[in-house]
């Protein structure tokens, strides 16, 4: 019995952001009072496993139907937005301002973490860019040093395949006063100011 509970705790603790204490709380909560909830969870997750897949083109997580993120309508816009992972794709979608297609890299180049160019989804990216459908490649990779390295690398690698490269500007967050903005962000914002 103890081993079964330990296994359950281990499983929950393997989720991002969940430590052993939180995992124990989840397991005890589910096993003690919520058998119905547990069975429902089992069914939903089981269903998800059988009906969810990775799009072989853009690497988004999708259902069994055609990928909603790289269909012909979206591709016809001619822009391809590079994101690190599916969460970033969802964040971009939530803006309601972008209507082109995406490509999920699956990571950022960081030799210190054992991630090199070959660990990213670049074979499929090159294939898509070679098709000549996209005139603009948008980097939406964040502002870490790893993202800057990855962006620089991809820019050089694909500079002959795309006419235009763009990146999201660094700037001041919405609803935040200047006094609460750090010097680097504020410096970047003033350098990249836009005309009214």
């Amino acid at each position: 019995m103890e081993n079964i509970i330990d296994d359950c705790i281990e499983m929950f603790a393997s989720l991002p952001g969940v430590g052993k204490k939180t995992a124990s709380r989840y397991v005890i909560h589910l096993l003690k009072n919520n058998k119905k909830e547990l069975i429902r969870m089992y069914e939903v997750l089981g269903n998800a496993i059988s009906k969810i897949r990775e799009c072989p083109v853009c690497h988004a997580i999708i259902g069994l139907d055609d990928c909603p993120y790289c269909n012909q309508h979206r591709c016809s816009k001619g822009t391809l937005c590079l994101v690190q992972d599916f969460r970033d794709l969802i964040a971009m979608e939530n803006t309601g301002k972008y209507f082109g297609t995406y490509h999920i890299l699956g990571g950022l180049i960081s030799p210190v973490d054992g991630i090199g160019p070959n660990d990213l989804n670049l074979v499929t990216l090159e294939k898509r860019l070679n098709a000549g459908v996209f005139h603009e490649l948008i980097f939406a990779l964040g502002t870490t040093r790893e993202s800057e390295t990855t962006q620089f690398f991809l820019h050089r690698k694909f500079q002959d395949l795309v006419q235009k490269f763009s990146t999201l500007p660094k700037g001041i967050a919405h609803g935040i006063g200047l006094e609460f903005t750090d010097e680097l962000t504020l410096g970047s914002a003033i350098e990249n100011r836009v005309p009214l």
């Binding site: 180049i109 960081s110 030799p111 210190v112 090199g116 160019p117 040093r145 790893e146 800057e148 390295t149 990855t150 620089f152 690398f153 050089r156 690698k157």
Partner: peptide, 29 residues
Amino acid sequence: ILLQRNQYLKSISGTSPADPHLLEAYDKQ
């Protein structure tokens, strides 16, 4: 960036030539 470049150099040491695009990315930074 130096740490990443050094790690990259170690990872390819004696096994494969350096990727010129990646090295350029590190060197420019």
